[in-house]
Design a binder for these strands. Structure first.
Lengths: 215, 215, 215, 215
DNA sequence: TGATAAGCGAGACGGTACGTCACGTCTTGTA
DNA sequence: TACAAGACGTGACGTACCGTCTCGCTTATCA
């Protein structure tokens, strides 16, 4: 079901690739997931549909590459980098701020993410990508590897620094910790289950750090 | 010349309604969101497409009602409760277990949710519904009102009981607390960003209760 | 496939019947055959669809009765009936003009028919009826009996009068004669194969009377 | 964002075109006008509906091309003549028989047409086409140009030959003459207003030639 | 003179077909 | 050989009507 002969990447048109990724991201921002079509992307990019199908297995894969494209100078098929300081950018050599004040640093980052979610230009493409990932485990794996993974490493690195500074216990499971801080935001954003404000971001950070039991 | 008003619910066929909701839920479980079609639902339910379009504004609305239908004896357009002790069932007068041991109770509930997510029969319809909600604010609002809201109330009720028993501080923001406990699960489930196990559920509960700072 | 118990015509609503026939004729004139629907007729007449299906076997039957309705004071289910001096009106005891001058009389009648065909208010319903008849032999039979038959009798009566006056040969087949005079008009009208003018009507009459051979 | 211009006929699939025209004609013959659907034609032709809608503006246009297709080796969009010696075939370079005996020649042709009308395989498609033409002036124009026109020329050519041989008067309006001969047949066929026999054909020819007045 | 059954308006129902959109594949011609 | 262009078979969309089927609600006999 996939193309059988790997296309000659050497002949690949960089101009078309760039146009496609840009068009995909912009269209996702303008029309939303439901009306995002390969035909629309091809038309906006001034490209034949086949050029998309030749290089990407699905609409979601294009979208994922569009995010990768943004979060580096590019990076589509290169290596390395990824992701964001919020939910979509940052990555690679990217690191979370480290002023020594973990709580302040986390609030800064989460507030930035909240702002991102509030901008339809990012909110909609991000929702589109999230939906594709939700539906497609293969895409989710690639997302984890290329976008979320590096970002998660940056998050864990910041927590590990706090750990080493004695601000967090040595036995803390950093994967759980990261989920505890970023999971609430994500779930409220996706389901629109409540207002997504700086105050909420602050409250999540404070509560996650100190726990429900005590204050 | 066309009718604009709400159709006469008095003449509505209960048999068709039931068949549609059942078909929608089952099909979502069998074929997944991407291949879930109104035509497919109508065919499986033995119903004309128009009967779906007459009563529901979108595929997502059908799916939401299908969940409501499950979580009560029915209740599509009736009143009252709904929702679940995990993520999709439970509801109405439904309450979280209260043995006095908050941590154990929460672990029990989260483990049940984890199990639910592991069953494709629930995982897939739930993903489908989540995607629809992600795309459609109106549906999200109805979801919040009819399914998530009552569930959230049950969750907050359990936390409030703990608060009143002095196990949680009086000033705790219960909305944030609920997100802190259930958000991590949700985000890991949707993005498949890590294994979803009982151990993970336990770790989330423990960490959320005690906070990152201390162990 | 038709209703099994003859409805009680005694209880039949004359108001509804009238409204339906009027609506059918007017709608046919306004929207044309292609967009003429039973639902549309019912809506325009302020009548339930069932009331149409109860009394008529098809849309075409309604249309035929609408013409019958026009061509008498009414006459839908009564007897007698008949048609027109042109193509759609006239009828019952109706007779073609007889001034003694056959040629002039025929020209008068054919010119009137031409005028009728030029008025969309008659042209379109007439086309609609003709189409229904073309498709439905049973309807064609009823048309022949109720509308065209009486008209044809009137035409033949006029020709017979001429015959008796020695203007036409005794052996003339009047059915063929009628077709020869009215057929050309009909065919040019339906296929729009040429201009339909008074001059054309005159030429047809003259040529039919004298034949092609001689002038 | 949609294409408005004529699609690129250069890329058109001849196989699909042929299959569509054949299917349309056959289906019209089998199920009749009322049940002739674009979906049915597409299914029978093994073709997507869009391929029909891409190249034809209406069901009637397909049907017309199907007749054109038959009456030549093909000729859908090519040039040249077509049409029929009776009512649907013949055309182009086609000519009516000319033995020098006009009356006999015309009887021969009209009898052939009568036979054609008696065969459901031609009767039904012909009715379907006639209905479409009745409803659609644009289609009627194209019909006049491509099918009826060439046929009419052939008919007029035969009459002109008789004229030149002194069998018909020089001043005879050939358009009227053609209508006088073929109109009666057409109108009797469409409305089923009487038996359509060889005897009738003969009588029409004889009466048209000699006129009603004298014998 | 009141029950009773029909016709009636309304319109929901299971269907078929409409004409459109997008899918992913394939073909053609250009550079 | 990659590309733009776009036709193709496929299948779903959401809408319009089909003809059938209840629902109350008149209304007009007939017990």
């Amino acid at each position: 079901m996939r193309r059988r002969t790997t296309p000659d990447a050497g002949r690949r048109s960089e101009a078309s690739r760039h146009a496609i990724l840009t068009a995909a991201f912009e269209l996702a921002g303008e029309v939303g997931y439901a009306k995002l079509s390969v035909e629309g992307i091809a038309a906006r990019a001034g490209v034949g549909k086949q050029t998309i199908y030749r290089w990407w297995p699905s609409k979601g894969a294009v979208l994922l590459d569009a995010f990768l494209h943004l979060s580096e100078g590019d990076g589509g098929e290169s290596d390395g980098g990824e992701s964001d300081g919020g939910e979509s950018d940052g990555g690679g050599g990217m690191a979370l701020p480290d002023t020594g004040d973990l709580e302040a640093d986390l609030k800064l980052v989460l507030r930035a993410t909240v702002d991102e979610f509030a901008d339809p230009r990012y909110d909609r493409p991000l929702r589109a990508l999230t939906i594709e990932i939700t539906n497609d485990p293969a895409l989710a794996a690639r997302y984890a590897e290329r976008l979320d993974g590096p970002m998660k490493e940056a998050k864990k690195a910041r927590l590990r620094a706090a750990q080493e500074a004695g601000q967090l216990p040595a036995g803390l499971d950093l994967d759980v910790a990261v989920d505890l801080i970023w999971g609430p935001l994500l779930s409220r954003w996706l389901r629109r289950s409540g207002p997504l404000t700086h105050a909420y971001a602050d409250a999540v950070v404070e509560t996650a750090l100190r726990g429900l039991y005590a204050r």
